[in-house]
């Protein structure tokens, strides 16, 4: 009972600010803006809405490209860092620096690098390649991928290092005594032991990928190139048009997808 009392203030806030209003959102997803019950009509509208499909597809594509890239890059960095105890500490800090740089500060740099007359095109021209208008072509997508990788590398490296630290050194010792090579050790010991961490890290990376909207919005505004038109842009536009019925249905769908993912994560945690 005492434990529950400690929790109570927080729980009361969660109920008032999150649960009750979300219940209202679920109710609204089945009604029109004026309040009449419309069954699944809002869901049908959302799923046949071309802007929603585009935004959902872009969000999915962004995730499908970013997450494997980030996981591989950060795993490679973490495995290397573990071998360099001295330099590793400094490098690890360096990788975390982007977390501390506010998006708003870095936007200025992104603009100067990726605009038509920007630094990147300058480098391309210098190397004899044709310049691209990065923010107004499909290149915008790669700018967003790059900025996500840049921002989240350190976060994932720390997570991998935590996973690596959990593998007991004796197993490695034993394998080395048996004459196993570095790659063999990685494939037969490191990888299998990191599998539970993989779930956790993948889900956390997925959730951080929603924050990529910040960069997309600050660099390209409300109406960016269509390749980086994300779900959050669509929600903002619907909010401006007061299309609360569509927002409600789309919020419920997004919540359901994320709920499913979180339950997968929980199972992974419990298996550990």
């Amino acid at each position: 009972m005492t434990g529950f009392l400690f929790l109570l203030p927080s729980l009361a806030g969660v109920v008032v600010f999150i649960l009750l209003p979300f219940a209202d959102v679920v109710r609204r997803s089945f009604t029109s803006v004026l309040g009449a019950f419309v069954g699944l009509a809002n869901y049908r509208t959302v799923f046949s809405n071309s802007a929603f499909l585009r935004a959902a597809w872009n969000t999915l594509r962004f995730t499908a490209v970013c997450i494997p890239l980030l996981l591989l890059l950060s795993l490679a960095a973490a495995v290397c860092l573990q071998r360099l105890p001295k330099a590793g500490k400094v490098l690890k800090s360096a990788y975390l620096v982007p977390m501390a740089i506010p998006v708003a500060s870095v936007v200025l740099l992104w603009k100067l690098v990726f605009l038509r007359g920007g630094i990147l095109n300058g480098l391309l021209a210098w190397a004899g390649k044709a310049p691209t208008d990065w923010m107004n072509t499909d290149g915008a997508f790669f700018v967003l991928v790059f900025s996500y990788l840049w921002k989240n590398l350190g976060y994932d490296v720390i997570l991998w290092l935590a996973g690596l630290a959990g593998i007991s050194p004796e197993i490695y010792e034993a394998a080395r005594v048996d004459g196993a090579g570095e790659w063999r050790i990685f494939a037969s010991i490191t990888m299998p032991n990191l599998l539970p961490s993989l779930y956790t890290i993948a889900v956390l990376s997925f959730l951080n990928s929603f924050k990529a909207f910040r960069e997309a919005y600050l660099v390209a505004g409300d109406y960016p190139h269509e390749s980086i038109y994300l779900l959050q842009h669509l929600f903002n536009n619907w909010f401006r048009d007061l299309a609360l019925d569509k927002m409600a249905a789309a919020a419920v769908v997004t919540a359901a997808v994320i709920l499913a993912l979180v339950l997968v994560l929980q199972r992974a945690w419990e298996r550990e």
Binding site: M1, T2, G3, F4, F6, L7, L11, V14, F17, I18, P21, F22, D24, V25, R28, V203, L207, F210, K211, L231, Q232, F235, F239, L244, M247, A248, A250, A251, T254, A255, I258, L259, L261, V262, Q266
Partner: peptide, 28 residues
């Protein structure tokens, strides 16, 4: 502390912390 519903509440807290802003936008 161990009290009834603790595990359920803990799961609820984890689920809520994972929700991105677009899910919470309208309810907020």
């Amino acid at each position: 502390y161990r009290f009834r519903g603790r595990k359920l509440l803990y799961t609820l807290y984890i689920i809520l912390m994972m929700m991105p802003f677009q899910v919470r936008m309208l309810s907020d």
